[in-house]
Simulated assay, not measured.
Amino acid sequence: MTRAAAIHDRAEPIPAAPPPHDLTEVELTWIEKRVENWIRFGREVGEQILDRRRRVLRFAPDSVFAFVRWAANDYGTIASNLDVLRTVRAGEPQQTVPFVRPGGDILLKVEGWPKVERVLQMIDAIEAIGIDPSDVSPDHWRHVHNRMSAGEQPRSYTAEHHKAFLLRRRAGS
């Protein structure tokens, strides 16, 4: 009898392999109209379903993703947050973010539904010109963060900006 058949015959769950140490994990929870955490964009490399309301997504080092956290009580919204993060390699400096292990390089952080909604509209505009937001220059997300923090209007990300970013990245490698 093979090992797989023996395991199957015992009807015991096979424990999931621990994730590699260099992956960033994001725990997502979805309790309709109470806690709704989701990834707006990003390329996960793995997923683990914890139960019907929770799952963990894993991202490779140097990935960029947007993490939206929203919570409400009987009286309405109590928290709205959107973070655009770059995942880091072991030993790199990082900031802590709730539900993100071990943490990441925060490129953009906004709080409050009006600001979250504005950033979601910016993400939609980037997708509308055919660019995956996870491929956008990290400097653009920092720019958006800084301008919004100062109460100013951020510049739009254009195909020309993206082309220049890709050329700079290629020249630097």
Rank of each mutant, 00 (worst) to 15 (best):
A16S: 13
G172W: 04
F165S: 04
H162N: 08
I7R: 11
S173R: 13
N73W: 03
R155L: 10
I39G: 10
V144L: 09
M1L: 09
R54S: 08
S173T: 11
L57F: 10
R52W: 07
F67D: 01
V144T: 09
L50M: 04
D105M: 03
P15M: 10
H143G: 13
S149L: 13
F165E: 14
R118E: 02
H143P: 11
V35L: 14
H143Y: 03
I106A: 00
H145D: 08
R155S: 11
H140R: 01
H21A: 12
S173E: 05
N37L: 11
I31L: 08
R118G: 04
R168Y: 05
E27Y: 08
E92W: 06
K163N: 06
W30P: 00
N37H: 15
P15N: 03
A164K: 14
Q121A: 15
D62R: 15
K163I: 07
V144P: 06
G172N: 08
E32Q: 14
A128G: 13
G76K: 15
I7V: 14
A159E: 03
R10A: 13
W30F: 09
T87K: 04
Q95R: 13
G151Y: 10
R40S: 14
P138A: 00
P114G: 02
A150S: 15
E44C: 00
V110G: 09
D124K: 06
V97F: 00
R54H: 12
V110S: 02
P61H: 00
E160F: 03
Q121P: 01
E47P: 00
E160S: 07
A16W: 05
E117L: 09
A171I: 07
